[in-house]
């Protein structure tokens, strides 16, 4: 009886929408949509040129895509896959972050050394902030007061005050910073450095460096251990860090900054995304053109899913 009821519930739920991971394929100009229940690609949607950063609006009714070589941010209806309109993004948008107000997109313009702020409602550029060369990593504090842009060649994290939209601090990190996240309720900022091979941890209140996390994969030369994207579990006790061409994901204790484990995934692992209950982690593997599914509790890779060429970004679309 209970089975019948849950089957019925499933039957009712299924047509609405399944839980999905959306993956941008940088060299195919497409998005691969993975069904979390079946772990299979169910849709492939065309985008503008060189799609990289991807994020959903708060209610998941819109998906924003950095179409880098089309010099635009595309706004797509995730239901139909139709491009609704383009946002003025500045040149070569690579990565962005949506402010907690669900309205302002902070966009890194990789070729222009600028962070562009776009109002997604009026579709206007409301500010452009000069940052270092090749801005890429973008993060916003949980209270929305600080936005971070990291610059790959300048090797800095630039701290933007979202009230004044001006820089209030610039902090050096190791070579080629790629990704930034606020951790522990916004009291810490983590910045990964691809060539430096480290994550620098800053105390947000003082912008002072607090710790540095280093990685060491057995049998892989240190030069190839290149931290890029990373994500934290729901309790923020554990971080998963993509280590690029070492083809591993590191598991880091966020209290002690110690690496607990390394998980073998596909080649040149780049970014990652959890499913809704954060029991599964999906990593984009650029060179092998696939996505590795990691069982978060067991810390094991359980499946490889073929997607398009050079998968880059990943974003969750929860089921309804």
């Amino acid at each position: 009886m209970r089975l019948a009821v849950s089957l019925l519930a499933l039957a009712l739920a299924a047509p609405l929408s399944a839980e999905e991971i959306w993956v941008t394929n940088e060299k195919d100009d497409t998005i691969s949509v993975i069904d979390v229940a079946t772990l299979e690609v169910v849709r492939t949607i065309p985008t503008g040129e060189r799609p990289r950063g991807i994020t959903f609006s708060k209610d998941h009714s819109r998906v924003y895509i950095c179409a880098s070589d089309s010099d635009t941010v595309q706004v797509m209806d995730p239901e139909t896959g139709e491009i609704l309109h383009d946002l003025p993004s500045g040149e070569d948008p690579e990565q962005f972050v949506l402010h907690p107000n669900d309205r302002h997109l902070y966009i890194a313009n990789e070729d222009d050394a600028i962070t562009t702020v776009v109002d997604t409602e009026t579709r206007r550029v409301i500010a452009q902030i000069d940052v270092g060369i090749e801005p890429e990593g973008m993060a916003v504090s949980p209270d929305g007061k600080i936005v971070i842009t990291t610059s790959e060649t300048t090797n800095m994290a630039h701290w933007i005050d979202t009230e004044t939209r001006e820089l209030f601090a610039n902090t050096l990190v190791d070579s080629r910073p790629r990704h930034a996240e606020f951790v522990h309720g916004g009291t810490e900022l983590w910045v990964s450095s691809e060539i430096g091979g480290t994550i620098t941890v800053f105390d947000v209140a003082s912008q002072a460096e607090k710790a540095k996390i280093a990685f060491e994969v057995r049998g892989v030369h240190p030069d190839r251990v290149q931290p890029v994207g990373f994500r934290l579990t729901a309790d923020e006790k554990t971080a998963f860090v993509a280590l690029g061409p070492s083809n591993h994901v590191a598991v880091v204790d966020t209290a002690t900054y110690e690496v607990q484990d390394y998980i073998l995934v596909g080649r040149r692992v780049w970014h990652m995304e959890f499913n809704t209950d954060k029991s599964l982690l999906f990593t984009t593997n650029g060179v092998s053109g696939d996505v590795t599914v990691i069982d978060v509790a067991r810390r094991e890779a359980i499946k490889t899913i073929k997607v398009g060429r050079f998968p880059w970004g990943a974003a969750l679309r929860p089921g309804t």
């Binding site: 601090a169 912008q207 002072a208 460096e209």
Partner: peptide, 18 residues
């Protein structure tokens, strides 16, 4: 306030806002 903060950071050797 900003200047003081920068000076403190320099003392830490982080070279922030130098």
């Amino acid at each position: 306030n900003f200047l003081v903060k920068s000076a403190a950071l320099l003392a830490f050797g982080t070279m922030a806002c130098a």
